[in-house]
Design a protein around this nucleic acid. Structure first.
Length: 433
RNA sequence: GGGCUUAUGGUGUAACGGUUAACACUGAGGUUUGUGGAACCUUCGAUCUGGGUUCGAUUCCCAGUAGGCCCCCCA
């Protein structure tokens, strides 16, 4: 072993933790899902938007909220050379709302319905279905507080997931009220926990100060016991929230969407009001814990928090694309550019190879998809590949054909073949379809 | 942040504590090949890092690092 091999070589760098390359089929899986999601979203009336990956850090600390893990521990932040404090978006909603306000979309017919599907960033510890750069497909309807909007967004998300192959999804829903009832509810809840302060685990005692709602879905056994008798938000809803929630549920029932009311569902982002929802896969990875593949809710006060003069009631859900694409049930959706080729182009000999790109160009201009492996030389090898790929026809272009400006069209199923002049090739191919 | 687990060529695997770390695929080069997954030849290439136990460590122990998974949290 040489010295160089022992010590001289540098360690290859590798991609950053929790971030990965999407190559080949992985890329198409993402693209295929995105196209399907986009198709459904457009059908339901959503329009595309793409916001910057970077926003002012304050946009997220205001929107997502101090006291959430996302803001406190997981944001990638940076200071620009000009001194601005920016953050890589940990989610899409804040940016979308910011754009709505910035572009005066209040003046458009409401609600303004927007979709986006692009990467978000969280400095998390990677594990199954969890990356530091991951893709979310968001649908948001801004500017309406109507309950049917909540139902519409849920329906659109479920449609996308089902078309992607999901089955046995469980839809969990809850309402956490608005400012009328939430303040009152928080008071009751805080009072309740204070009564049990001595038996409350340290984590949850901390949460009591920062975000008492989160104690409701605590994983601490002790807390779970205490939670059994905790006041629930639905019971404390004011009349208008109660009505809103009831209507949402009615719409879901009317559409035949099975749901479970989970009174402990509160969500980790602090901008939510009224409806909160989570869509969980029940038969996901073998032995793995069920993953939430889409989640969202209503965020009626976010607009004002981000600087709008008027309230902008809104509802949105985001889908964890990585979790869909990585699920065993995902049916690999093909992007539109992937056309299944019927012809396998085979070239033989140097003259033919020279001209073959020109022949292929004729086919490309006629929008006839082909496969080929120009780097291979032997006829047998190329025929073998065509066979393996299940190509119905092979186009054989050799020395003789190159001289005669013709090509052999071979029917792979019955091994019959015919020599066709290049000038008549397109015409002949049409008769095959 | 806490826990469990894994670590051998580019990939997948092998090696009772004991020769020159084996095999397959892949890559590169070559011979042959005008009709259905070809053959043959040549060649590149690895024990994560650092300690310890031992006459001797890929193998056992400890630490580090990296990956996977679980908790927390989240899509």
């Amino acid at each position: 072993m040489t010295e160089k091999n022992k010590k001289g070589n540098k360690e290859p760098l590798g991609s950053p933790k929790g971030m990965r390359d999407l190559v080949g089929q992985d890329y198409y899986n993402f693209q295929g899902f995105f196209e399907k999601a986009q198709e459904v979203a457009v059908y339901y009336g959503f329009k595309p938007i793409e916001t910057p990956i970077l926003e002012y850090e304050e946009t997220f600390t205001t929107a997502v909220g101090v006291g959430t893990d996302i803001v406190d521990k997981e944001m990638y932040t940076l200071k620009t050379k000009g001194g601005d404090h920016l953050a890589m978006r940990p989610e899409h909603t804040a940016g979308t709302m910011r754009a709505y306000i910035e572009h005066g979309m209040q003046n458009e017919p409401q609600p303004v319905m927007l979709y986006t599907g692009s990467p978000v960033f969280r400095h998390d510890k990677p594990q199954r279905g969890r990356y530091r750069q991951f893709w979310q497909f968001d649908m948001d309807a801004l500017g309406s507080e109507k309950s049917i909007i909540d139902a519409l967004v849920v329906k659109a998300v479920l449609t996308i997931l089902e078309e992607a192959g999901a089955h046995n999804l469980s839809v969990e829903i809850n309402s956490i009220g608005d400012k009328e009832c939430r303040g009152q509810y928080l008071k009751e809840l805080t009072a309740y926990y204070k009564k049990h302060l001595s038996s409350l685990p340290a984590v949850d005692r901390e949460r009591l100060k920062t975000n008492p709602l989160r104690i409701l879905d605590s994983k601490e056994e002790k807390t779970k016991e205490i939670n059994i008798d905790a006041p629930d938000s639905i019971g404390s809803l004011c009349a208008s929230c109660k009505k809103h929630f009831k209507e949402v549920l009615e719409y879901l029932e009317e559409m035949g969407i099975a749901y479970t009311i989970n009174k402990n569902l509160v969500r980790g982002l602090s901008y939510y009001t009224r409806t909160v929802i989570e869509i969980i896969e029940q038969d996901g990875g073998e032995g793995g814990t069920p993953l939430t593949i889409a989640a969202g809710g209503r965020y009626d006060y976010l607009g004002k928090q981000l600087g709008s003069k008027k309230d902008i009631p809104a509802m949105g859900i985001s889908i964890g694309i990585d979790r869909v694409v990585g699920a065993p049930w995902y049916k690999k959706l093909s992007p539109r550019i992937m056309k299944k080729a019927k012809f396998y182009f085979i070239q033989l000999g140097s003259d033919a190879k020279l001209k073959s790109l020109n022949v292929i160009e004729i086919l490309r201009k006629a929008h006839i998809p082909i496969s080929q492996s120009l780097s291979k030389d032997s006829l047998g090898a190329q025929l073998a590949i065509a066979e393996k790929l299940g190509m119905p026809y092979a186009l054989i272009f050799g020395q003789k054909e190159a001289l005669e400006d013709s090509v052999i069209v071979r029917d792979m199923s019955n091994r019959s073949q015919e020599t066709i002049k290049l000038a008549k090739l397109l015409e002949y191919i049409k008769t095959l379809k």
